[in-house]
């Protein structure tokens, strides 16, 4: 240990480094954990978050796979059912179409179909989100597909701290957990303790306390919501921002408690608005807190279109602080 060095009070890491540190700690603490996916070993992933792991843990525990998403997830399912703890990487969430049978019909259901006899401790890391001009097949946020499948857990970290803590929690969980990361967040910096710690799956985080407007969001939209909150403050709106962190299970209680206090709510996500998580959350709010509402529950999401390529089009497609402010104004009639 470098006890002679001045230790900064707060250690900051980027999102990508936090992911790397989490996976390293998982491999170190779990002798049956391994990482498999496309370009994860030699290249350390196209996003760089497995850098150094092959060298540290060797080729039996960190290995490249063919470009065979169904095979990769199937390998994870079979290995998990027979006693290992796989960390499976699907490079882009958009590629899940290639492995949706293994996710939908095998991974999510095997335990139930077998009457509880199988345990599937799989951590599946994948990358979501637009903003890099990667066009329609490398930019999607498809979490609604996954949250609709009983048997899966789904988390989407917004910060380096949550990325590390949710990956460690996922790897220690005996269920399949999908960790959908965000590509535009890779360079975000934030406080990250060095030790292994868990961010509990199923617990939302109130990232801004406020009194008269609840914004429920997750992943990169948390940062857009925080920015929007500053503008809204000028309109006399004191927004409370809830980062769900975990979409399945969903921390409905935190959302409802906030709405009962603020009487107004909006859900913000990067995914296409139609059929997105926002509909589910809005429905839960009206089911359980209808009498507390002073206005309909708003929703901000992407329009019903594939993600466009042109930087100008993509910019107008992706939800942002300005759209959140506009939706708040609409709901307030301001």
């Amino acid at each position: 240990m470098a006890e002679a060095e001045a230790v900064p009070a707060v250690r900051e890491l980027t999102y990508v480094r936090a992911i790397n540190e989490a996976v390293r700690l998982v491999l170190a603490e779990q002798s049956t954990a391994f990482v498999a996916g496309e370009d994860v070993a030699g290249a350390g992933s196209v996003f760089g978050y497995y850098a150094g792991l092959l060298e540290e843990f060797g080729p039996e525990r960190v290995f490249d796979t063919p470009i065979s998403e169904e095979g990769i997830v199937g390998l994870g399912v079979g290995a998990a059912a027979t006693g290992l703890r796989p960390v499976i990487d699907i490079m882009f969430m958009d590629f899940m179409g290639e492995c949706m049978d293994e996710i939908t019909n095998q991974m999510a259901k095997m335990r139930y179909m077998f009457g509880g006899a199988a345990t599937l401790p799989i951590t599946l890391l994948t990358m979501s989100g637009a903003g890099m001009n990667m066009a329609a097949q490398h930019s999607q946020s498809l979490e609604a597909w996954l949250c609709h499948l009983p048997g899966l857990k789904v988390v989407m970290p917004a910060t380096p701290y949550d990325a590390k803590g949710l990956i460690i929690a996922a790897a220690r969980d005996d269920n399949p957990v999908i960790v959908a990361l965000n590509k535009m967040s890779l360079r975000f910096k934030g406080e990250v303790p060095e030790a292994a710690y868990e961010v509990p799956i199923g617990a939302a985080n109130i990232v801004r306390r406020g009194e008269n407007f609840t914004i429920v969001t997750y992943s990169r939209m948390v940062h857009e919501a925080l920015q929007a909150a500053q503008e809204l403050a000028e309109l006399g709106v004191d927004a409370e921002i809830i980062d769900l962190r975990s979409l399945q299970p969903l921390d409905s209680e935190t959302v409802l408690a906030s709405v009962r206090k603020t009487h107004r709510a909006m859900v913000v996500h990067e995914a296409v608005r139609f059929g997105g998580l926002g509909g589910e959350i809005a429905a839960q709010i009206q089911e359980h807190a209808f009498d507390d509402l002073d206005a309909p529950v708003g929703r901000v999401g992407a329009p019903f279109s594939p993600v466009p390529f042109s930087p100008q089009l993509e910019k107008s497609y992706v939800p942002n602080a300005a759209k959140i402010v506009a939706e708040a104004r609409r709901l307030l009639g301001a």
Partner: peptide, 19 residues
Amino acid sequence: GIVGAGPPIAVGAAFSCRF
């Protein structure tokens, strides 16, 4: 119930045997 679902799972089980 899914035709062809078994082989990838068996690959995982075989990986486990060797691991």
